[in-house]
């Protein structure tokens, strides 16, 4: 397979989509989801960066319309599908229950934007997935509230609530990890979309998709030693995560390149982007490079020099959770 990096302009993107129309044989009118899933798997190590400087309608307000457009373009480019609907259908079955794991720890200023999480939910309902089969969730209901989410439980619309105390009663094991998983993950979801935030982390170097799953276990504080390694990688090997994770979208609308996980205004910047992929290792590697570049631009030492190289990403690659070599990742920027 040829691996390459491309920088797409919007015009290039439209051309690319147009070329797909001619290059890809027309799909049968009643297509097989399974066939489309196979098709999507061919783009498994692709990572798409969509950036829109205009995503902020004011310094602190994000435009849902532009977020929606970023999502539409990004998901098409990621999957190689012509329309967003086809793209989402290539990833999810209509009768699946889908969990959207966000990161709300840092409060409103450095969390997964509600506009993005609800935007993803809207895309899913657009293809016919029932709203009440979609759950936006994180560790705590209170943290979700603080991050601006509207709590909905047992609702006919999109649900949104925290695990709180609802963990499995017996521990599961995965390498060095022994933990009780959130029952939202184990009982309520067939598939997971992980939407972390592009940010630095004091212990693990970065807190992206792999680290995001510390929010589904009952004892994350027991796995902070040695830069959270190999704990993060071992956790992501568990079938509850490995077999359910279908899509990663890093919310890089606002990034933070130092001082995480709490919000620190002096190190936050409007990256105005999303980073999408199906391979959590590849996405995290690309995300960590964005953070490293920003640190360099601002005269900060590399994460390695700062004593917190995100070694968990390579540990995850060694466990075959994804591609840990940038040269083998197809990065498309839009």
């Amino acid at each position: 397979m040829v691996h390459y990096k491309m920088i797409f302009k919007r015009r290039d993107f439209l051309k690319y989509i147009a070329s797909l129309t001619s290059a890809i044989p027309p799909l049968p009118s009643i297509f097989s989801i399974a066939d489309k899933t196979v098709f999507a798997k061919e783009t498994g190590n692709r990572v798409v960066i969509t950036k829109r400087p205009g995503v902020f309608s004011s310094p602190t307000i994000v435009s849902p319309e532009i977020v929606n457009s970023m999502l539409s373009d990004g998901i098409c480019l990621l999957t190689g599908c012509k329309t967003p609907e086809d793209a989402w259908r290539s990833l999810f079955k209509l009768n699946e229950r889908i969990g959207i794991k966000i990161n709300s720890l840092g409060g409103r200023k450095i969390c997964t934007h509600p506009e993005l999480a609800y935007g993803v939910a809207k895309h899913l309902t657009n293809i016919g997935i029932r709203p009440d089969n979609i759950i936006i969730f994180d560790r705590l209901t209170n943290e979700l509230k603080r991050a601006g989410y509207k709590i909905q439980k047992n609702s006919s619309s999109v649900n949104c609530f925290g695990t709180d105390s609802d963990y499995e009663l017996t521990p599961e094991f995965s390498g060095t990890i022994g933990t009780c998983f959130s029952r939202i993950l184990t009982q309520n979801c067939d598939a997971i979309i992980s939407i972390p935030v592009l940010k630095d982390h004091d212990l693990s170097g970065v807190s992206l998709s792999l680290k995001n799953f510390y929010g589904v276990i009952h004892n994350p504080n027991k796995y902070h030693d040695n830069g959270c390694d190999p704990f993060i990688a071992d956790l992501n090997c568990h079938p509850f995560i490995k077999n359910k994770l279908r899509l990663v979208i890093i919310d890089a609308i606002t990034g933070q390149y130092n001082g995480g996980p709490a919000f620190k205004s002096q190190w936050a910047w409007p990256y105005s982007g999303l980073i999408l992929g199906r391979d959590p290792v590849a996405v995290d590697l690309v995300g960590s490079r964005v953070i490293e570049q920003k640190r360099k631009q601002n005269g900060l030492p590399t994460l390695k020099e700062a004593g917190r190289e995100p070694i968990h990403i390579q540990s995850a690659a060694k466990r075959k959770l994804g591609t840990g070599n940038l040269n083998k990742i197809e990065v498309l920027e839009l």
């Binding site: 840092g106 004892n219 027991k222 001082g259 996980p261 709490a262």
Partner: peptide
């Protein structure tokens, strides 16, 4: 422990 984080005891 960094801001917003907890110790080992949780």
């Amino acid at each position: 422990i960094s801001d917003l984080e907890r110790g080992y005891c949780g």
